[in-house]
């Protein structure tokens, strides 16, 4: 649950974004620019967060009235081994040193729902985080590191599976299914696609981050829709976006079926007027943007 330090939304003085070139970062920068919010993007070209001088470079840029959004991370598609794990922690250590040296007014850390185990049933913000791989452990460790270093209100956001055009990742989800349909004319599922997952549209994630910034919110919030869908249904929705027939095929199941559903009451409570993009609408929008 979040606590809003601005009960009424207020424009931030400036938003400093670490990781402005990733899937979420690009959209967030574009959205903030469109809203005429002052933005300072610190990408790898400006600051290599794994370099020894990263903390000094960040703190040299930070102002006391800034909102700092920390998105930068080596995602699982860049490897799940120990080197990216350590690099991710090194990046967080630099950010922590910087915010200790030059505290901003507000910090937003975008973590991941990977910190929750799949056996926990309905997930909410009180669910026990129990990372079971190094990527999840990295996010968990970063959350703790930043909590320890932050002297300003800190919001930790744990988005679930994000989809949308321009997604650079290729994990099992809407983006990959769409790419399969476009390339092969068919979608291949794990098993018969019985697993249910929650998929949140990139524009919703960006809008929620903006709300967190404007309300100067602090606390923990999962970013999910609360409407899980089976991969088989998702595949059919994706297939329907194409003018020609797209086959949806099952494959022999190798792993047990797991489900993930979120109780998003805390999100509804934090932002009562927020409206999610429906999955079919979001898929259609993403599809349209990719083919244009």
């Amino acid at each position: 649950m979040l606590q809003h330090h601005n009960s009424d939304a207020q424009a931030p003085s400036r938003v400093v974004i670490l990781g402005p070139n990733g899937f979420v970062g690009r959209r967030l920068v574009a959205h903030l620019n469109a809203n005429k919010t002052p933005v300072l993007s610190l990408g790898r070209e400006q600051v290599d967060l794994t370099a020894g001088n990263a903390a000094d470079k960040i703190s040299a840029e930070l102002r006391s009235d800034d909102t700092l959004v920390f998105l930068a991370a080596l995602t699982p598609d860049k490897g799940r081994g120990i080197p990216p794990f350590l690099d991710n922690l090194k990046m967080a250590a630099a950010v922590c040193a910087a915010i200790e040296a030059k505290p901003p007014a507000h910090i937003v850390y975008v973590s991941s729902d990977a910190v929750y185990p799949f056996r926990s049933g309905l997930v909410d913000e009180t669910s026990c985080a129990e990372p079971n791989d190094l990527y999840a452990a990295m996010h968990m460790a970063r959350e703790i590191m930043i909590k320890q270093s932050a002297k300003a209100p800190l919001a930790i956001l744990r988005p679930t599976l994000i989809y949308g055009a321009d997604d650079t990742h290729n994990s099992y989800g809407p983006n990959r299914l769409r790419r399969m349909a476009r390339k092969d004319g068919r979608i291949s599922l794990f098993g018969d696609g019985e697993e249910t997952r929650d998929h949140i549209y990139i524009d919703d994630v960006v809008a929620l981050i903006e709300l967190v910034i404007r309300h100067r919110s602090a606390g923990l919030l999962n970013l999910a829709t609360g409407k899980p869908v089976a991969f088989s249904d998702l595949a059919r929705m994706v297939a329907s976006l194409f003018p020609s027939t797209v086959e949806v095929n099952g494959t022999p199941r190798k792993n047990p079926v797991t489900h993930r559903a979120f109780d998003v009451t805390a999100l509804l409570r934090s932002f009562p007027k927020f409206r999610f993009t429906g999955l079919e609408e979001g898929l259609a929008a993403a599809h349209q943007q990719e083919i244009v």
Partner: peptide, 21 residues
């Protein structure tokens, strides 16, 4: 206790499902 908290918000979830959007 968790079940109680979850069920308490049934109406809020229904509102967000049926009315507010």
């Amino acid at each position: 206790q968790a079940n109680s908290r979850f069920r308490r918000d049934w109406v809020l979830r229904k509102l967000h499902e049926l009315v507010l959007p």
